[in-house]
Design a binder for these strands. Structure first.
Lengths: 222, 222
DNA sequence: CAAAGTTGGAAACAATTGTTTGAATATGGC
DNA sequence: GCCATATTCAAACAATTGTTTCCAACTTTG
């Protein structure tokens, strides 16, 4: 499409407004007026509002997948040498590190997380489809590694637990501002994102390694 | 406001559409045409779209808070007799049971959960404020009981962990349809809501009882 | 039965939405 | 210099939004 200043001004403004208010609640006029560009610029450079939304995501997810693939490459290479399986903690740790790393440059982890949360919760069917098609492969690679790291878990159980912890992370980090306000007000304790990740670690690990649920419906367990 | 058939037809239709597509993405014309009532009926009976949204929530949350208070009363009374503290599992169990119980009549747990998820994720400031003001007290009562059940947890840690598991539950149950599709397709296994709650139980308990995170910088031991 | 008040309905309201148009301006290659 | 292309801009577009108006139909009540 195009490269220069207008495009990034639009993207910078759009991602903030989207994160603050959602997609449907943010009009193109909101974006263009705040970005000080002409209204038609969005349709000119991106084609449509849908395409703009996808472009906002691509600017985060493209570098993320690149780095995450690289990090997994390195992790696999290291463990291929000493012949050991990659432990679950290391996988989770790697993912967390990559997630923290990518938006660090623009100091916008909060925006990134909020966008991810919106992608799941807003109806926007096209978005989920886009993300699935464009970035599904890296997620599949990760889950396959998790599978090898947790051979004791039935496949279905692991599937659900991964989504359980995904929910924890996205919910917490995407609602971070509101929660942080409450926490600071109630406990007079400032929480940084790194702080939260530190708190999340043992919880997520314990969640993944929780005992298996009792088998369904039958009154009699062994 | 009013009582008869039109009002409930609007509410029934609105909650389904809201759950499917979000608030901003659902127009009053969508609702009224599908409910086969006149467009003006919404503003006549509820006053505004905002008020309709709140009414949809109230229809779930009012009975929920009533029953939850009652269930907690009973739980407290039972444990006051034998002098023991209420264990965490029982608290979580009670909440889960109440959540499952309330919408069971209309077979709309999915809708209920999806609405809760939207309430958190959609910007809709008025909604969060409304829910907080209207139903904050029952949540505070619950957290106080959780506090007594987990005296080993620092207050801030407990606060965060409660929101961690809240995220798990809301995220999972509100995105249930999509996740269920994937799960059935990949593992040929049908998952009911009760099934999911069964899977959630050990995960949530383990998450709450996870070891404390290490203070800001140190190595880890299992 | 008739008056009063409540509910239902078609139409119009003003505001806002995403998108398109066509002319003006800047930019870059020759 | 000039031409072609790329970008910006103001204006208008058609569609949709929540809300209001005014009148008909109904139910209740005296």
């Amino acid at each position: 499409m195009a490269q220069p200043d207008t495009v990034t001004r639009i993207l910078d403004t759009a991602e903030v407004l989207f994160a603050e208010r959602g997609f449907a609640e943010t009009s193109l006029r909101n974006i263009t007026s705040k970005a000080k560009v002409n209204l038609a610029a969005v349709n000119y450079h991106f084609g449509s509002k849908k395409a703009l939304i996808q472009a906002v995501f691509a600017r985060y997810l493209d570098p993320f997948t690149t780095r995450f693939h690289a990090a997994l490459d390195e992790l696999e290479a290291r463990h291929r040498q000493d012949g050991s399986e990659i432990p679950l903690e290391e996988l989770l740790e790697t993912m967390a590190r990559t997630v923290l790393e990518v938006p660090a440059e623009r100091n916008s982890l909060k925006v990134f997380m909020r966008l991810l949360g919106l992608a799941y919760s807003q109806a926007q069917g096209h978005l989920r489809r886009y993300i699935q098609e464009e970035y599904g492969s890296v997620f599949m690679r990760f889950t396959e590694l998790v599978r090898r790291a947790t051979p004791e878990l039935p496949d279905a159980e692991r599937f659900w637990r991964l989504h359980f912890v995904l929910g924890t992370v996205i919910f917490t980090l995407s609602g971070l501002d509101a929660l942080r306000d409450i926490a600071e007000q109630d406990y007079h304790e400032h929480v940084s994102v790194r702080d939260l990740v530190r708190r999340l670690r043992p919880v997520v690990v314990s969640a993944m390694q929780a005992p298996l649920p009792e088998p369904p419906a039958q009154q009699e367990a062994s």
